[in-house]
Design a protein around this nucleic acid. Structure first.
Lengths: 269, 269
DNA sequence: TATTGTGTATCATAATATGATATGCGGTCA
DNA sequence: TGACCGCATATCATATTATGATACACAATA
């Protein structure tokens, strides 16, 4: 295992973290060997590290199948995160009101490097599972929320992001043409909001308004997802947008701190 | 640092985890020295471990104040947890419907040792912050959800739990008399649901129905919190309870796996 | 300017993690 | 039934890796 430079880096800890990150939507429970394969560690190391994580309550272990799974401790970490994020406390009451008012699913998203992450979600209607749980990361360029945030950035940064940030194709109608994405963002600069259709799921419309923070830049957005079957563009602009913008504007002034732009805060390479 | 037995336990990893667990509702961001104090590690160890966590993206670091904070990665872990918990996928759609139907806050809780933990929350009205975020752990005996789950346990285990499990006083009206808690649970055995008043917050009423799992035992519950000012006991029993029970019953049959009773799954001591 | 409380960097030492190897255990197939 | 296979678990000598005392840097305060 490569030592990342030296003496200020505890490799064992990093390896242990790699084990945690081996779990995702497609890998919900893992055997020892699977864990070893997914983490790239050898059998012995995996054994010791997984055992340690189990002892410390970070991994559950099925006594019959001997397979490991995320433990409740993972939710406790999320709990601690929420208290530490100054935006969440300000936003949640207003988001609750908004969701009840609209009767549609409302999300709070933050910028995390070149992705957005769902920090808080208030589902009001049944949808697919991934749309109901927090912590999901998506390429910023492919989401209404990401485009809304980017629209508050200086022109040069917007251009750089459009050019370099990753894109992923989720549906046949996901936009992979960066020129079109640029247009969408530039439109958001004018409008103050962003709309995207069918980027993640067919016939799903996302509407997002930026939460303006430090220096006029937005690192968060209020987002709403509705069905294209029940909402026309006009209906969205008259019924949803004003309330969405009011909510974002109401959150903005009470939130002064910058966070999570992924350049200054994150270390490593 | 004591080596927990030997050779199958990586102390550095455990120490790193202790650093993560140093963050909670009262400690949202920590300096290096605070981190050292709260984790019980010396300055050098803390420095190396915190630096590693930062490099790996598990801790954000404010470039000005040099203080550490939980990173978005903590939410990603929660995301992975949700996929791994077989109950959540079954429950969420039904909980959404329930919350919309009732217009009141609905929670999904699971048993985690002798505590309950909020796994999913669907707030419909403004409340205090801690009631809106997932991952909160509370002593099972002090909650309607915990009592509802316990009511499905064999008599001997119920008795043992009432006697030994922890209690914490949150409000002046939190019940600390274990005899009364026993009565409350025995009543739930008969009724099939549990109600508690003012345990966490004054004038807050909690109503919970167990989600029956493996072998008739419940390790999860559907819970609803309402204000005693707007709901009488009768109103709760007629308007809320039937729907709550329907939801719990609808989830139960589709959920066969046992999880998280905290005895068989957790290791260590 | 001196001082205190921080964060950061360095380094010799030994304690700690390493990973090859061996054992145990439960299935599956002939 | 017996041999086999896959996987989890245990062991142990080795040197790689973490250790923590110490020294330095920097900012805020007095």
């Amino acid at each position: 295992m490569k030592q990342k430079q030296n003496t200020l880096y505890v490799a064992s800890l990093a390896k242990g973290l790699r084990l945690l990150q081996a779990f995702d939507e497609r890998h919900t429970d893992l055997s020892l060997l699977e864990l070893a394969q997914r983490s790239g560690l050898d059998k012995s190391a995996t054994q010791r590290l997984a055992n340690t994580l189990h002892m410390e309550g970070m991994l559950d272990k099925d006594p019959d199948t001997r397979r490991f799974r995320p433990s409740h401790a993972w939710l406790e970490l999320a709990y601690a995160y929420y208290w530490s994020d100054p935006l969440v406390g300000q936003a949640i009451p207003k988001l609750i009101d908004l969701a009840q008012d609209l009767g549609e699913t409302v999300n709070l998203t933050e910028l995390s490097g070149d992705h957005i992450i769902y920090v808080s979600r208030l589902p009001c209607k049944r949808t697919y599972f991934a749309a109901t749980i927090i912590g999901r990361r998506l390429p910023a360029l492919s989401t209404s929320a990401g485009r809304a945030m980017l629209s508050t950035f200086p022109e040069a940064e917007r251009a750089a992001a459009v050019e370099n940030w990753p894109i992923k194709k989720f549906t046949p109608s996901t936009t992979t043409d960066r020129a079109k994405i640029r247009d969408s963002i530039e439109q958001a600069v004018v409008d103050g909001f962003a709309i995207s259709t069918g980027q993640m799921i067919l016939n799903e419309v996302g509407i997002a308004t930026p939460i303006i923070g430090h220096g006029g830049r937005a690192f968060a957005a209020v987002q709403c997802s509705v069905s294209a079957h029940t909402y026309t563009r006009e209906k969205i602009e008259t019924e949803i947008l004003p309330k969405l913008q009011d909510t974002a504007n109401a959150i903005s002034p009470s939130f002064q701190q910058q966070r999570g732009n992924g350049i200054s805060l994150q270390g490593g390479a």
